[in-house]
Design a binder for these strands. Structure first.
Lengths: 345, 345
DNA sequence: CTGTTAGCGCCTTCAC
DNA sequence: GTGAAGGCGCTAACAG
């Protein structure tokens, strides 16, 4: 009969060395090793040398699961975004992570796919890792999510949105104001035959509806919204323009809820021989990373994802390390800017 | 005198409930709670009901740090890519994460910024989390990294590259072959005045050099490589074309190491009134997510990041859960395809 | 500056 | 089916 657990048998890799192994080799107590690694200022140089030598000799890598369990800190920040395929989220996440890793934190990424159902599931799973902070795109969460987030007792930053009911901190911009300003901007330039093309995502829809409302307020009622399913693709942009032109052949401007579908609109216009911005103007929304540079024909609303990411990191780190600060709720409007084709050229 | 540790005092949020709390409320032993949650088939339905009720009542969230420490499994997969701002990596990471979360794993993302120095640092930090598997873009690592990876004793997948010295598994394609096929393709179409524009990243350079070598082999020696610094931006693409044209005004095709700089080349060409593909042809490289759709003028090498991501997940999960399988080294060529402007139109 | 003791929250092993 | 003991690797809180 063969024993099931062959405990002594060094299969391939011996179990990784522990702090105790290091201590034994260095000839000091385990706690001294711990201190030499985490708070060297509390340890004599002689002891440090012995410890570091032993660490190198063993190839010791501290087990943060154990450390986290003991200290009740994980040095983990959870980040929830709908997708990273969208360059504006990618930019934000990138900036956030860059700032975070500099401070010794790691990022746990959760991709929600614009579904707050999925967000809730992921949240459950990720809360089990006891992150020291949570970043969420958007302010629309399920009730269960909100409750869990509040009970978790850790800093929460909602980004990309400013609402009246923050869970904790908020860093973003007002989608309503984007809509209002875009509408005003285009109205003032003389456009009157508006069409709106929106992705079926909550924030995109809010911007789009705000455009329509503002235009109505200015005397242009009944502007149609064409809605295409997320995620954004060039093809849905093309399809969108097709549908718009079928209904309103005389549209003189199409306001899109994202850069990607705006590019699709441009592609469709090009393939139909419609000149932009001659016969038709197109407005996008995003990070300007590519669209507006390649297409001077495209006007766009510019959001600075990098800035958002950096501010989030800053806010989070202040809370996490600056222990003194008691819950100063934070509300930062990172704003946006409207880039016009005229000024781009 | 005030006791320092005010154990009973509910400051703001009482410490989150533990499995023991749940057990007490459910009137069972802790281990029964654990089993009800992880292997319900071992627990009577009556007990399960009591446990789940107690879980709901307390809002209990299992502490995976503790669980991981006890089981020596973290259900964490570390993913290292240079950046997610590049849509092809974003696509790969997205697909990988989607497959992973379905199986109860979470992703720890590490952004190396094309520096294997930075990769090494990050690796150190992340290995401390005891991930169950590691995915790395590229096969160029520091010696220290390679050693740590081998010693970690966990599945390692190198993606985006196929080399002769795999650490463990490899899933990707041959950059040399891309270069060879691109060179052959364009040569056969009759081009003779080649220019190569490459980002300063290891894989891009390998493709570019391979193009040059293959062209030399075919009797077109001395093709110049213009190198622009990473990360890819449209502006560096524009700058690149400027430099190329300054040296070789009669270039008839520019081969770019990424879609983004190819788009920059197109933009620069447009602003100079150079027609594409009439006067100048442009070849890109990437995921076809936007470039080749919007620019039928752009030929490109297409890499399917989604497929790579899915295969990686598959390979990893097979290793992690399919305990039986002993180290079957894996080598998958996911291939690429050359998309021509003629066939795109 | 260093060591001792105790325990973080969970799961393994073995007994019932 | 369920439970009791012990330990995963580390660090707090004390003492010396």
């Amino acid at each position: 009969m063969v024993k099931k657990s062959n405990k002594g048998t060094p299969q391939s890799a011996a179990a990784s060395p522990t702090l105790i192994d290091v201590a034994r080799i260095a000839g000091v107590s385990p706690i001294t090793v711990s201190r030499a690694l985490n708070r060297p200022e509390l340890v004599s140089v002689a002891a440090q040398d012995k410890v570091f030598a032993a660490v190198r000799a063993t190839g010791y890598v501290p087990n943060m699961l154990a450390g986290g369990l003991a200290t009740n800190k994980s040095r983990l920040i959870a980040i929830f975004v709908p997708t990273i395929a969208n360059s504006i989220f990618a930019e934000t996440v990138q900036a956030l992570m860059d700032s975070l890793t500099g401070e010794g934190y790691q990022a746990l990424l959760g991709l929600t796919g614009y579904s707050n159902q999925r967000e809730e599931q992921l949240l459950d799973a990720i809360l089990g890792r006891r992150p020291d902070g949570i970043v969420l795109a958007g302010t629309l969460h399920t009730d269960a999510s909100r409750e869990r987030l509040c009970k978790a007792g850790i800093p929460v930053v909602e980004i990309w949105d400013l609402s009246d009911t923050p869970i904790d901190m908020q860093i973003g911009f007002s989608h309503e104001r984007v809509g209002i300003e875009v509408a005003g901007h285009l109205f003032d330039k003389g456009y009157r035959h508006f069409s709106v093309l929106s992705l079926d995502d909550p924030r995109g829809l809010r911007r789009s509806r705000s455009v329509v409302d503002e235009l109505a307020r200015r005397g242009v009622p009944g502007v149609p919204i064409e809605i295409v399913p997320a995620p954004a693709t060039l093809l849905s942009g093309r399809e969108g323009l097709r549908r718009i032109l079928a209904q309103r052949p005389h549209a003189d401007v199409v306001i899109c809820s994202s850069d990607t579908i705006a590019e699709g609109v441009l592609a469709e216009a090009a393939s139909r021989g419609i000149t932009v911005p001659g016969q038709l103007s197109v407005m996008g929304f995003g990070d300007l990373s590519s669209a507006a540079q390649v297409f001077p024909a495209l006007s766009t609303v510019r959001i600075d994802g990098t800035r958002i990411g950096q501010r989030v990191a800053q806010a989070l780190l202040a809370r996490v390390s600056g222990q003194g600060r008691e819950h100063d709720p934070l509300w930062i409007d990172t704003g946006f800017s409207i880039i016009d084709r005229d000024s781009t050229r």
